[in-house]
């Protein structure tokens, strides 16, 4: 199944790009001429790309390639971890609402509706500002605001599965609600959850970079793509490469995740047609 999926260019190409980016973020800092937070006193501050610094240096003389790789680690980590948090909340919420249905479902989904309509980002900003900018808080806060889509999708699927004969059979055979959910319903949600997760990751990366851009996310000396774009945008007239390289990596990553999510969803929809 997964092998056949990987043969499709619409899935293989973005997957390969993502793999390369992840690899670069992990290995890149060792290939760089100096650590991401070290200053090269020989090079000019804000030096253009050269053999010594292939992405150039920033306005403090730090190697941009190393910084983009290290920033990528954090951005990607935020993407994955926050998505896991949103998965956990979204699946529990959605599966509970879909499984029990009736009033419970109505109330739970009404809450999702209300939350959906709120400018949630303001809460995240508030959290960041008020409770310091600890990276763990960033993960949890972003995860905590991006579970709504997941909850809706899981609830819809659970509702549909609830009417399937094999679920009735499990009920008749005396399995408890929790056991049925874990053993019969959740495995059948796998496809939609993977698609939704693939599309949540870029959202989370986006939110983190948004916060970092405002100076509310990750703090010096640590960095992320959003923080690098912010630094680069300030000096973009004199040293445009400071904006271009992190922006290209950020946009390419977001695009690859979006393309992958789209292609996976299309693949998931096919058998039904």
């Amino acid at each position: 199944m997964s092998g056949a999926l990987l043969k499709r260019p619409a899935i293989a190409v973005p997957a390969a790009i993502l793999l390369l980016i992840v690899l670069l973020a992990v290995v890149g800092p060792w290939l760089a001429p100096q650590p991401f937070d070290a200053i090269d006193f020989d090079a000019d501050w804000g030096a253009a790309p050269s053999a010594a610094h292939i992405f150039g240096t920033d306005d403090l003389g730090r190697d941009l390639f190393a910084r983009v790789c290290v920033g990528g680690r954090l951005s990607l980590a935020v993407g994955f971890v926050s998505t896991l948090v949103s998965l956990a909340i979204g699946i529990v919420w959605g599966a509970t609402a879909g499984w029990f249905g009736g009033r419970i479902d109505a109330v739970m989904m009404r809450i999702v509706d209300i939350l959906y309509a709120l400018p949630f980002m303001f809460f995240v900003i508030l959290l960041m500002v008020l409770f310091g900018r600890h990276w763990l808080l960033i993960f949890v806060a972003i995860g905590a605001v991006s579970w709504l889509d997941m909850a809706r999708i899981v609830r819809g699927q659970t509702l549909a599965l609830r009417r399937q004969p094999f679920v009735d059979a499990a009920v008749v055979s005396g399995l408890g609600n929790a056991a049925i959910l874990v053993r019969h319903v959740l495995p059948n949600l796998l496809g939609v959850v993977i698609v939704c997760a693939t599309l949540t990751i870029p959202q989370a990366i986006l939110v983190e970079s948004f916060l970092s851009f405002l100076g509310l996310g990750i703090q010096e000396p640590a960095t992320s793509w959003g923080a690098l774009v912010n630094d680069g945008a300030r000096a973009m007239e004199a040293t445009p490469w400071g904006l271009i390289f992190p922006a290209v990596f950020l946009v390419l990553t977001l695009l690859a995740f979006n393309l992958l999510g789209d292609a996976l969803r299309a693949a998931l929809d096919e058998p039904r047609r």
Partner: peptide
């Protein structure tokens, strides 16, 4: 969708 406003704005 993949172009954040803080990348678009400086550009």
């Amino acid at each position: 969708l993949s172009l954040p406003s803080y990348v678009v704005a400086p550009v």
